[in-house]
Design a binder for these strands. Structure first.
Lengths: 133, 133
DNA sequence: CTATCAAAGACTTCACATGCCTATAATAGC
DNA sequence: GCTATTATAGGCATGTGAAGTCTTTGATAG
């Protein structure tokens, strides 16, 4: 069980965009070079972030991506959910009556993790780092 | 990102074995029927649990699987680690200097989840359930 | 009008989970 | 010792999803 590389790319891109907030959008090309990944692949990931309302895109010359106005509120969990989906990481495959005690335990554990990811905002991390992303 | 079905089967099998603790081992066949999975597949999973020292096996007629003596201490995390491996669920694919701030956040979150899974023992859950597994 | 850029879709490749089948080894009961 | 039962091990098949490439289309600044 592992988070996908797409999640890794998404998180790094978002953090990088906080460091380059000015009104001038940044193209996929530069972002992809920074991450060491192909531009076409990264663009797919960024499109997901656009649809989720976390960043906005501008087509055409001098276009690119930049954070949206409400970006201060974006949490790690928001980004991860956008890429990985919101499905819980455990589904009991049995159908024993009503509720599975095992599933409840694992889901509670998952919630602990999500609580932490929900409380960690991109803005807080950006302050801590401020140096190389 | 999801736990594998193998983990699901392992957890359910372990819980089921707590309910059937007597000295008579239980064969894969019965366990597999209970879970609705093929016996050959389940046996691979159980072999992992044997090698991890959580259960013990007996070959030959009237053989099967049963919990080991120390089973009271087994936690959810032990079982999950046995099947899923112990690799952390996030690896930063960049090489930016020393440590990745993003990775630290995700790993801290993961530890919260693991804490919960480590504190939940099989024995505790077995007491709560006592009914159908 | 043209160069630049995002969006979208089809496609390939690869790894892994899931599962089956067969042979081998161990053991209880006769 | 013989036989039935049972775990162990290995290889094989299949499906699914991640990771990545390529191409076309559409939008836009200058």
């Amino acid at each position: 069980m592992k988070y996908s590389k797409a999640t890794d790319y998404a998180l790094h891109t978002m953090l990088f965009l906080t460091a380059a907030t000015p009104n001038q959008p940044i193209g996929v090309q530069k972002l992809a070079e920074r991450l060491g990944v192909s531009a076409t692949y990264l663009s797919k990931i960024l499109t997901k972030l656009v649809k989720a309302g976390m960043i906005e895109s501008a087509s055409g010359a001098r276009g690119g991506y930049r954070l949206k106005r409400n970006w201060e509120n974006i949490s790690f969990l928001d980004i991860i959910h956008t890429i990985e989906g919101k499905a819980s990481l455990f589904d009991c495959s049995l159908d024993h009556g009503s509720e599975c005690a095992i599933q409840q335990v694992v889901l509670l554990a998952e919630e602990k993790m999500e609580d932490h990811l929900r409380n960690q905002t991109l803005a807080e991390l950006a302050k801590k780092v401020e140096v190389d992303v």
